[in-house]
Every structure is written in structure tokens, then in C-alpha cells.
Design a protein around this nucleic acid. Structure first.
Length: 246
DNA sequence: CACCAGGCCGTGC
DNA sequence: GCACGGCATGGT
């Protein structure tokens, strides 16, 4: 087993991709519909080459993570390579605000509804994810009507503080975590997801309900620094593993 | 009918 | 500093 594109694209780090049902996946990114059947399709596309982080040595990382302990080895060997995508800051921020106390299927639906309501149609039925400017006139009532629920005011707060996302780029990890949490609806878990999946901060280690279970059961007394320098990737493998194991 | 989902906020101690 | 209830919505 080498790449696990399905897990990378549909496993909860992005909500942009759809299963086309013919062995390929598609998303509206970079202002156009991107389609991909295997990682080779990304190599010839400069935007996707960067987005899929092709210059990083994931094979070496896999080997070093697997060698760390038996649990990690089982997690890594239970699946193919999971990549850390380089997503747009704003898209990732709204995506993970939507993710709190929610499930992947419903998050994806909300992402689609926001796109249809505030984004731009680039092909019949395919819409860009709206920018903070596209959403500047959004109201809480509108957002609630789309099903965002109690997250609606959080989205409005993010719109008004979107400039924070530019500041974060220059900050060290701990300061970046703190700065992102100035936006309502962003706590430690959401902040770490944004930093990993949009700012390439591989020291992030999101602790959601699943990962708290993993830590309690298999790593009692340990903290994320145990996984250094592969905190984020180790977390992705453990998350995928525990979730598929039920 | 419960209970849960890639949590966080506000409040109280 | 930590514990707790509440929160919109849809699926099981």
C-alpha cells in the first residue's frame, strides 16, 4: 500500500473534496475544478504539486514514525501514506470552526452550502469556497438558515478578524496558537488543525474526542512532544487508525 | 427516545 | 486554574 488518497482527501483534514465515484476525486480550488485519480495527476500541475506537499519525504516520515513504538507501527501500517495538505488559510479556518461538535459528513454539507450561497460558480453546480470578502455581508440569520447553528456568530467573528490569519504566518507555534484563539469559536483543537493543514506547522497535535481516547488508552502520562518531530503526522495516522477500528 | 459528532463559551468555584 | 452545562443540527 502506498498513497491513501481517500484518507488524505476525505479523512477530515479538508472538506473541499468529493468522491466522483469513478476512482477519482474533485474539488474547486485555485478558482477551478481540480480532478485527481492518483498523486501522479498532481505532479504536472504547479498548484496541486504545492497543495499536495510533493516535495516532502512522506516515505521517510512513515518509516521513522513506525519505528517509534508498536502502536504507531500498527497505525502506520494499517493504511497508506496520509499527506498534510497546504490549504488556504481562510478556507481552513472556517472549515474547522464548522467542525466543532460536528461530524465529517455534516461539515462537508455545510461547506457546500456556504459555497453555493457565497461562492462563485466555476462549472455547472461547482462553486468556489467564499473568501472573507465574499462573506463580508453575511448575517447571523443567513448563516443559521444554512444550518451552521451556534457556529454562526463564530463565523461572523472570523470575518471581522480575518486579518489575524495574515499575522499568524510570522508567529512561532505557541504564539500562533494563542493568536488564532482570539477568534471566537477557535480553541486549542481548532487552532492546531488550522496551523497543521494550512500553515504547515507539523508540531500541531489536535486532541479531539477520538485522540483523547487514544492518549488515555495507549499513551497515559505522555504528551504530544513524545511524537516529536512528527506530532502532526503521527496524530493523523493514529486518528485514522482508531476511527477505522471503532 | 436517547446519544453522538475532529469543541468551545460562559459561568462558577 | 479546572469543572460543568449549554449549544444547532442531523444521523444512528
Amino acid at each position: 500500500m502506498d498513497e491513501n488518497l481517500r484518507e488524505t482527501l476525505l479523512g477530515g483534514q479538508t472538506f473541499s473534496w468529493r468522491d466522483d465515484g469513478d476512482g477519482s476525486f474533485s474539488a474547486v480550488l485555485d478558482g477551478r475544478v481540480c480532478r485527481i485519480g492518483s498523486l501522479a495527476d498532481a505532479a504536472s500541475d504547479p498548484f496541486l504539486s504545492d497543495y499536495f506537499d510533493l516535495s516532502y519525504d512522506y516515505e521517510k516520515a512513515r518509516e521513522e514514525i513506525a519505528a517509534k513504538d508498536p502502536v504507531l507501527r500498527e497505525a502506520v501500517e494499517s493504511t497508506g501514506t496520509i499527506r498534510l495538505l497546504k490549504q488556504d488559510h481562510w478556507t481552513a479556518t472556517i472549515s474547522f470552526i464548522l467542525s466543532q461538535n460536528n461530524n465529517i459528513k455534516r461539515i462537508t454539507g455545510l461547506y457546500d452550502r456556504l459555497s453555493r450561497r457565497y461562492g462563485h460558480e466555476v462549472e455547472p453546480g461547482r462553486y468556489t469556497f467564499p473568501t472573507s470578502f465574499d462573506m463580508a455581508q453575511a448575517t447571523e440569520e443567513e448563516l443559521r438558515a444554512l444550518g451552521t447553528g451556534f457556529r454562526a456568530p463564530f463565523i461572523l467573528d472570523a470575518i471581522s478578524k480575518a486579518d489575524i490569519l495574515d499575522e499568524v504566518e510570522a508567529l512561532a507555534f505557541d504564539e500562533a496558537m494563542e493568536r488564532l484563539q482570539a477568534i471566537k469559536g477557535i480553541g486549542p483543537k481548532v487552532a492546531s488543525c488550522i496551523l497543521i493543514f494550512s500553515y504547515q506547522r507539523r508540531e500541531g497535535f489536535p486532541l479531539d474526542v477520538w485522540m483523547k481516547r487514544v492518549m488515555r488508552e495507549f499513551y497515559p502520562g505522555k504528551d504530544p512532544s513524545y511524537f516529536h518531530p512528527y506530532e502532526a503526522l503521527s496524530q493523523q495516522y493514529l486518528f485514522s487508525w482508531i476511527r477505522s477500528r471503532g
